[in-house]
Nucleic acid binder design. Structure first.
Lengths: 182, 182
DNA sequence: CCTACCGATCGGTAGG
DNA sequence: CCTACCGATCGGTAGG
């Protein structure tokens, strides 16, 4: 297992997802990637600097290779929604949400990265809905993401994935109702 | 300001809500309530033991004095939903969600308390819907809570409360559609 | 990329 | 209810 930059970022992501910003330690990350802690600091200037890397990688993975909305916006929407739901189902929690709750004004760079991540994701979703002529695409995108994120609560507290499945199914139905309005 | 047990619990709640389980320190709590840290340990045996106290107080406050569902289930439902939404609007985040993401198997008592809290709240909501003859009350209750919780993401990242308002309004509409089914 | 260290802070306790 | 302390761990750095 080579210790690439990308490897460090994905391992940092797993730690942030599981333990949050405070709970993830640079020592844990070092052990995980097979380095000494000091060596991490030759790649990343600080713990905080990992957050933008983690989130931009996540955004990239979430939207890469998505069907062109101009060609088939329904397919693009369903693929994106199901991809997000699948990640939550596999990982049990959302890194972004854990970081959103975990970063404070003490780490402004991380805080800004979290805001930008969710804003970009929402905008990506809204753009697809806009092609489909869906009413108030920004609101529908935000609410859809909120429903998916909120469903992770039940996965964490009780292992129940049915709320996530309903959220995914309901979101996909947006793309199977009548064309044009609503 | 007297340093009552209840005072300590509500201050602990504010710290947990803002900083999460790891991020909230017993020293901060002690300073906040005007005691030395060691003195906290004469009231509570551990940091972990504060979690059940915080959540049972929160559950109590959330459901106390609610209209009797048998008398007017629509009013009971709307009051409960709006009460939850109001708390999120005022406090900007949900203690329960922050704790759900923040506690691990390293603090099993806290973890169990979080699960019980959300299960009890969902059951309370479902019981009201059951009186109203709403279809699949457990699922509707879980999804409603998920939508409200998820909306806090947008409050945190961008200050946008419109998603929370839509969640609250949509939930309340459950109680204004036709009696009986759905 | 390492060893070795820094000051700060953590949850918790001894002892009065 | 306090002072004073415990060992552990934190993010980060010096110096090679």
């Amino acid at each position: 297992m080579k210790t690439t930059l990308r490897n460090i970022v994905t391992d940092a992501r797993e730690l942030f997802r599981e333990h949050g910003y405070d709970g993830a330690s640079m020592q844990d990350l070092a052990t995980r990637v097979g380095l000494k802690k000091a060596s991490l600091y030759t790649r990343f200037p600080s713990k905080e600097s990992l957050v933008p890397e983690v989130l931009s990688l996540t955004l990239e993975e979430t939207v890469e290779g998505l069907p062109d909305p101009q060609e088939d916006w329904r397919l693009a929407w369903q693929t994106l929604v199901r991809r997000i739901a699948k990640t939550f189902e596999t990982r049990k929690r959302c890194v972004g949400l854990h970081l959103a709750y975990g970063v404070t004004s003490a780490t402004p760079v991380a805080q800004a990265a979290v805001s930008q991540f969710f804003d970009a994701l929402r905008e990506k979703m809204a753009r697809i809905l806009r092609v489909g002529g869906i009413h108030d695409p920004d609101a529908v995108a935000a609410d859809t993401l909120a429903q998916l994120e909120g469903a992770t609560l039940w996965i964490i507290t009780s292992g129940d994935m049915t709320s996530l499945h309903r959220a995914s199914a309901n979101a996909c139905q947006i793309a199977t109702r009548s064309e044009g309005k609503r």
